[in-house]
């Protein structure tokens, strides 16, 4: 039996934490509701309100016909750009990072600590230090303003994270297991495929989720290295805000925001556990 004071205390704690929880949901709820309201309705009242008329057409319009910076094809091409950048960059950087992390953690070789230190320094190196070099590298490779250019950048820079994640995970593989494999006569690739990779799904999921959300949400490279129809959706959102500044179209804009935020949110919703594990893994570097 709890004392009345303790019961009261527990009530207070529950009210406080759930109140905060609701507060954290407000921006999401507001933007979703707005995406279903008409521009006039928003202008007349405020951004925060319940739709009087459910305006589902916002989504149709913003998806395929809305004009962003002189092009009237909606947000779809930019979503496709983001997907075309994010998916290959995520997969390639994860795979290469897994092999590199495996080599660094389980095969000692000359200079392995140095190279690992340098690669992980990339986790901290600000993007601003790399903007001009990337501009020039992209130009010399003829990849300026291309999806392939962004894939390359995100793959190479992502290696810092993927290598770090996988290396830290593989460090926990017991030394005896590697010894047993050596005695059994398994080589570099066989040990990777048969022993290490089957142990890897947890870290690979973490890495894929981390890479996917980060590349999808990335803005600076997108806006710097691509223009117009080649931009990823984050850059398009900013362009869209600029375009509607004169005539407020907040319903449409909200719909665009919801659409652009949806893929990483879905990933979070279905892989939440791994998402959090990635955060903490990234934090304990």
């Amino acid at each position: 039996m709890r004392s009345p004071a303790a019961t009261l205390g527990r009530w207070a704690i529950h009210i406080a934490i759930w109140g905060l929880g609701i507060a954290y949901l407000v921006p999401l709820v507001v933007v979703v509701l707005n995406s279903l309201r008409s521009a006039e309705e928003i202008t007349q009242t405020s951004m925060i309100g319940w739709p009087h008329i459910w305006e589902f057409s916002n989504y149709i319009q913003v998806w395929s016909t809305y004009c962003i910076a002189q092009t009237c094809s909606g947000i779809r091409p930019y979503m496709l750009n983001s997907a075309a950048v994010t998916i290959p960059a995520t997969l390639i950087s994860t795979l290469l990072g897994a092999v590199a992390g495996y080599a660094i953690s389980l095969w000692r070789f000359k200079g392995d600590r140095w190279i690992f230190g340098l690669v992980t320094a990339g986790v901290f190196l600000p993007e601003q230090m790399r903007l001009i070099p990337w501009t020039i590298v992209l130009r010399d490779l003829g990849m300026t303003n291309t999806i392939a250019g962004l894939v390359m950048i995100h793959t190479i820079q992502g290696l810092s994270f993927t290598t770090l994640f996988c290396r830290n995970y593989y460090m926990a593989i017991p030394a005896d297991l590697m010894k047993a494999a050596h005695i059994d006569g398994a080589g570099f690739f066989r040990i990777f495929w048969r022993i290490v990779l089957p142990l890897s799904p947890p870290i690979l999921i973490v890495t894929v989720i981390w890479q996917f959300t980060h590349i999808w949400n990335e803005f600076l490279y997108g806006v710097t290295f691509t223009t117009g129809q080649q931009q990823p959706v984050t850059a398009a959102l900013i362009a869209l805000s600029a375009a509607v500044a004169d005539v407020p179209q907040h319903g449409l804009q909200s719909a665009a925001v919801v659409v652009a935020a949806l893929p990483p949110l879905l990933v979070y919703l279905f892989g939440g556990r791994y998402f959090v594990r990635g955060l903490t893994a990234g934090a304990v570097k």
Partner: peptide, 16 residues
Amino acid sequence: PKDRDIAMVFQTYALY
């Protein structure tokens, strides 16, 4: 190791 004609049993068993 694989060509030394040896086999090893480990403290942690080291089963795959």
